[in-house]
Design a protein around this nucleic acid. Sequence first.
DNA 1: CACCCCTTGGCAACCGTTTGCGCATAGTTG
DNA 2: CAACTATGCGCAAACGGTTGCCAAGGGGTG
Lengths: 333, 333
Amino acid sequence: MAERAATLRDVAERSGVAVSTASRALTKPGRVSEATAQRVLDAARELGYSASAAGRALSSGRTWTVALVVPDIANPFFFGVIRGTQSRLREGGYAHVLVDTEESVEAEERTLRSFRRSVDGVILAASRLDDESLVAWSADVPMVTLNRAFPALTCPSVVIDTPGGAVQALEHLTSLGHRRIAYAGGPRTSWSDGRRRAALTSAADRLGVEVVVLGPYAPQREAGSAAADAVVQSGVTAVLAFNDLLAFGILERLESRGVRVPDEVSVVGCDDVFGADLVRPSLTTVRAPLEKAGHHAADLLLASLDPVHPRIGAPVELPTHLVVRESSGPARS
Amino acid sequence: MAERAATLRDVAERSGVAVSTASRALTKPGRVSEATAQRVLDAARELGYSASAAGRALSSGRTWTVALVVPDIANPFFFGVIRGTQSRLREGGYAHVLVDTEESVEAEERTLRSFRRSVDGVILAASRLDDESLVAWSADVPMVTLNRAFPALTCPSVVIDTPGGAVQALEHLTSLGHRRIAYAGGPRTSWSDGRRRAALTSAADRLGVEVVVLGPYAPQREAGSAAADAVVQSGVTAVLAFNDLLAFGILERLESRGVRVPDEVSVVGCDDVFGADLVRPSLTTVRAPLEKAGHHAADLLLASLDPVHPRIGAPVELPTHLVVRESSGPARS
DNA sequence: CACCCCTTGGCAACCGTTTGCGCATAGTTG
DNA sequence: CAACTATGCGCAAACGGTTGCCAAGGGGTG
């Protein structure tokens, strides 16, 4: 390690001004004279100065850091989200702390507790927290939720309208002649899962088809085997899976059991994550605008963090649409 | 936002001790008496106290934060790595800042400059920096490189032996009767690409086969079209791609051109990222232990950051092996 | 009973930056 | 030419922890 890094004091000494002036020259354009500012800037460059985030955070109260909290970093659903938040946050000058709670409510609370004071805000993706905790935390730290509508209007949220897409999928399958359709559900703690379930059962009534709810299953490929077996067992002709990962697992299992897709069973996923068009048969799925969701979440947070006129934006709901590929087809008669 | 968060001073007052004692009670086990420690702990809990990272960083010089710098956050190669580093860093009590440089050398340097003072260390994955800059930066900030061997032994590194795996792939193809084999290369700035190229040409000599180097191509699916066309044009019977993403693109393009895989052309990828076993035909590929690589990188960094006896670990080279699936087969005769 | 050591906890300096306040100096006006 | 207003800059006090140093007190030993 080289000698200790240059501090603002070093810069000030080198340019022959007071520390306070150096600070202003670097951060408050127009607050010092042109000539002085230039001297300070030069000195800073020569010394390779860059401000200490800790010092700055301590005195100004702003850390220029945002935490993104996700339940499972291995889930490609969140890759898209991460990309979206990352690009916007960087544009806004914020650093990006990534936290994986591994689907644990305790880990989520622990994270919030420990980051509360060290970040300016939090993006909570697919939070497993209950309403009450959510409200409590949102009073403590600027927060935006993603795919978790907010009970009170105290904090902005962005939700992806996957239920709407799921209903589209149901209509698609119905029009292909399917009459009994399974829904392979996700974790019970998932708010999204509840919404989808409700939307599907009500749409099923309207369409005059039967929806068989299976699960809950972990939103992972491995869980697909059990789901596929349940699908076969239940005798439905089509299945809509909680997410694409589960759908992938179902496809694998059906193939290994010799059940042909879509001839015998149609399979539809949710999200359109990386890989949905690679698998064979390629997966019919409800496309969720993941990166865009990340953008909106970051934008909302940044708006509420604006030092001059912070504003809490209106909740955003992003539409989805069905992408029809090879894994869905006419019901076997 | 609620009233301001509790500080150490609040905790000290509530428990009737000095600030210094409160600090020690919370961070130096054994340094204060059992009874006092308990009082402080209780007070802290009652107030919902959690230490300010900024204050702590400023006085102790440690931020308990590590930056992970990747060239492209959209590349699933790095998902595995991120998971690996994330889990180890969290165990070690470190927070995880994620930075995407978008393959830009300038962004990489800018990142290092701005984070130098605000993180305890950096994991530099697939750095595009030249040797000289790398050495210079490693003197400034504790650093571990991933898939970028280090010129001097000043900083630990972990490299994945993909060249070894690529040679295995070449042998596999040779034993299947292929005599002219293409290598669809990656970005010229990629250190890994250079290594693979060298390993392949020397192995080709030994095996008595011809390797046709194509490219460079961007390590992305979209680049696969051009690569596939070049493959067809060159008249080889097999192609080894720089990474799986490129291989996916090649498979897609070959399929749409009506070239059968593996009957007419065998395709082999590198990395075995998420999706390699989903695509049809499933991809024969060189499996890189991504998560393990992340583990090692984090472990090495943590070891060099150890406050009591920091040690710079020996460079780690992780073996790879070929996973044979459906996309490779006997050469057409 | 005197001495010493060890445990415990307080004092205060320090980490690097921002910012409210006040003091010069220069420029403008009557 | 005096009085007043901008403008530019410096002083010093925060921000919230950590830690070296020291003093007081308690217990053990000769």
